[in-house]
């Protein structure tokens, strides 16, 4: 057991800040889609040929999304460099560079959606990569966390010496399965959001019940199997709560986007439910990954 240095603690706190900023970015992206503002700024990387166009109408949402994205890009670069020079573990460094690569690719995909006028395939890829990027940052923050550092475990060492799952390998495998199921749901959700009319909504709804069932079984398994470990138990309970919230947000989003007639512009309730469902879905995915990593520890 080693005590984490002050630098490590600040690096961990900074990684949490980047995770938080990324959740905000995902929310901002959801608001762009919900406001149908994806093409409100027809050029890229500039906006109407400027760095800062008048923030009127839907330009506010699209250019605001670009500004937050730029900030997250810079935050990620700083995180990557900090890990590069402040950490010895090669795998953590690779993970940081992978996150950096993901955010650069994400920016390019964002530009492509504008230039190619929102082709569904690019938009769906952009939506999925956003949440994959969040997962990379969550994993990075987990490996930079004081308990993990205190245990003196690098990711490679952890996989070889973990004691929790050595006795319960099924629990880790089960959470890998749950994470995969949530990721599939994310892809289906992205297809629903970026195609119209979308038949994928049927699969998205059916698969939601599968995911809810799996998560509740997984949460129960964690609480029963690892009652002595506060971290996984806390994550499991939060995840269970978020899944319940997600179910009701999904109902609202379904009602407003698929059932009720549309007005000349998206309604406030439609924007709220669709964006909140989208962002909460990202949190469910991120917590599923966190719990998977925690039970593996």
């Amino acid at each position: 057991m080693t005590s984490p240095s002050s630098n490590s603690i600040w690096l961990y706190r900074y990684s949490l800040l980047v995770v938080f900023a990324t959740v905000l970015l995902i929310l901002a992206g959801g608001l762009v889609t919900s406001h149908e503002a994806g093409l409100a700024v027809p050029d890229w990387p500039l906006s109407y040929g400027q760095m800062m166009p008048p923030m009127v109408g839907n330009v506010f949402w699209e250019h605001g999304h670009r500004m937050i994205a730029g900030t997250v890009g810079i935050l990620t670069l700083v995180l990557t460099l900090w890990v590069q020079f402040g950490k010895k573990c090669a795998r953590i460094k690779k993970l940081a560079w992978l996150a950096m690569g993901a955010v650069v690719l994400q920016a390019l995909l964002g530009g492509l959606t504008v230039i190619l006028l929102l082709p569904p395939a690019v938009s769906i890829f952009h939506a999925c990569l956003a949440q994959t990027f969040l997962c990379l940052l969550v994993a990075l923050a987990f490996f930079l966390s004081p308990p993990f550092v205190s245990a003196g475990l690098a990711p490679a060492a952890a996989s070889a010496s973990n004691t929790g799952t050595a006795q319960r390998p099924w629990l880790f495998k089960f959470w890998v399965l749950i994470f995969a199921a949530v990721y599939v749901q994310l892809i289906l959700g992205a297809i629903v959001r970026h195609t119209s009319p979308s038949h994928a909504v049927v699969f998205h709804v059916i698969w939601a019940f599968v995911v809810i069932g799996l998560i509740f079984l997984g949460v129960r398994a964690v609480l029963v199997t690892l009652p002595e470990r506060q971290g996984p138990a806390r994550t499991a309970l939060t995840l269970g709560l978020l899944v319940i919230v997600q179910f009701f947000l999904g109902l609202g989003a379904f009602l407003y986007t698929q059932v009720l007639a549309h007005g000349y512009a998206p309604r406030t309730a439609e924007i709220f439910f669709a964006s909140a469902h989208h962002t909460n879905g990202a949190l469910v995915l991120a917590l599923s990954l966190l719990l998977t990593l925690q039970v593996r520890e």
Partner: peptide
């Protein structure tokens, strides 16, 4: 007009 959603 994607800036002003009422414009079509």
């Amino acid at each position: 007009c994607d800036v002003h959603p009422w414009m079509n």
